[in-house]
Design a protein around this nucleic acid. Structure first.
Lengths: 243, 243
DNA sequence: GAGAAACGAGAGCAGTGCTCTCTGCTGTGA
DNA sequence: TCACAGCAGAGAGCACTGCTCTCGTTTCTC
């Protein structure tokens, strides 16, 4: 009803609507068949339009995939953030286990979305800045938990660290709230390093399970996952107890 | 010169030769452009033959990829086995670091081969038994190192383990030399579990780096890798010292 | 040497990403 | 109010893909 300088005219509304239908159809095809089989023409057919018309909305197939990538990053980020937020005040170590479990559950529920972001990168895809902002949300949760653990005195200060501040990218420190690398206290920088290890073990554990590398090795995947998470957590000084 | 019951006639020799040229061409295209861009027709062109003729040697594109997958598994396995063998008697923990570094180097040198085996699985690919035998070689090295560590008394027996024997797949135990699951001593089964964590952290650390997830986070990738490996090793009771 | 088996080439089918052109429709400024 | 610019969509077409089928030719086997 309000009329701003750039109002939403009928055409713009129609365009936005088609765009969201397009994304929904693409998402559906992604979830059911995987990114490799996601064809722009098939999505166009689902929408009942000519394939050439899709190019009015999306410059290329890779661009469409990029949109789905951002969606996926936001989805995992949201899952992790929600679990962390719901655990108000609980032991950060146990919260980390819950976060990790939730991310694993998300990945098992939509394996193709997980693959899209943490599997083999899409050919010709170069992360645009929009992606980075969404991609980094999971990191943010991990860093937050480690900082809480340090604050609570639950984080074992010893561990295989190394001169950290100088080797962390400014973006990573910015996630933790430090815009000027030189002002970062040593313990915070150490936390950033440890967050990398936790992130790696999380992504690694899910990848290895999802991509079939445990097929002839582990029996109980969920338990194996828990043990892996607990082990890497112990490595960075977080004591996670299982059952 | 010897003439077995099934001698290598001229045709068979030609066939074997074409087959190896085919594989070589496919490998070259894989290394330069990645598996997604590997086209059977392009390989056929490289060999100067009609695309349809390639189907006399390989039933499908996926089958060709499967052959490359086996090659890649054997390549990493060989790298790991060589490093482990060359470290005769050295501290198993340090040897593990060397093995991990060598695998990382291999992955950075031929990223597309690494992707092929540890990235998103090829669509429509279901691991045939030939693959399993090659895929499990890296696991074998890890288990060997852990057993050596246990023998030398270097392996911290404590750690986040769980009732192991019942939950390990028979194939995994077979790698460690135990064909009958019921005869597996508890400590060996524990080792198998820990090998999973080491394997996961190795694959995870390389994936995360290779697939660009450290791009805005870590500065010194090699150092980050070492720290991750050392951390997860510490988690399973192996003390790795860096420099 | 005759018949069978294997080999290679070519045409062809269905599918893909993407471009170009043409036709309507919509929103805008005179 | 009306002509004009810009946009959405459709269709044809190009170059590419995996894969199949057919048709000669070569090679091995009996």
């Amino acid at each position: 009803m309000t009329e701003p300088t750039t109002p939403l005219r009928a055409r713009d509304r129609a365009r936005a609507e088609v765009m969201s239908e397009l994304l929904a159809a693409a998402r559906a095809r992604l979830e059911s068949e995987g990114s490799a089989a996601l064809s722009l023409r098939a999505v166009a057919r689902d929408l009942g339009m000519a394939s050439s018309a899709v190019y009015r909305y999306v410059p290329s197939r890779d661009a469409l995939l990029t949109l789905l990538i951002i969606e996926a990053y936001d989805a995992v980020g949201e899952v992790a953030e929600k679990v962390a937020a719901d655990a108000h005040g609980a032991d950060p170590a146990q919260t980390w286990l819950e976060v990790a479990r939730a991310v694993r559950r998300w990945a098992l529920d939509q394996p193709y979305s997980f693959e899209l972001i943490y599997g083999t990168p899409v050919r010709g895809y170069r992360a645009p800045d929009d992606t980075v902002r969404s991609a980094v949300r999971l990191w943010g949760v991990i860093i937050g938990l480690l900082m809480a653990a340090a604050r609570d005195g639950v984080l074992d200060p010893a561990g295989p660290d190394f001169d950290p501040a100088g080797r962390m990218a400014p973006e990573a420190l910015a996630v933790a709230g430090f815009t000027d690398p030189t002002t970062v206290p040593d313990d915070v920088a150490r936390i950033a390093i440890r967050s990398g290890t936790l992130f790696t073990s999380l992504v690694g554990a899910i990848s290895v399970e999802l991509f079939g590398h445990l097929h002839h090795v582990a029996g109980d995947y969920a338990r194996f996952f828990d043990v892996t998470i607990a082990t890497s957590a112990a490595g960075v000084g977080l004591r996670v107890s299982l059952d």
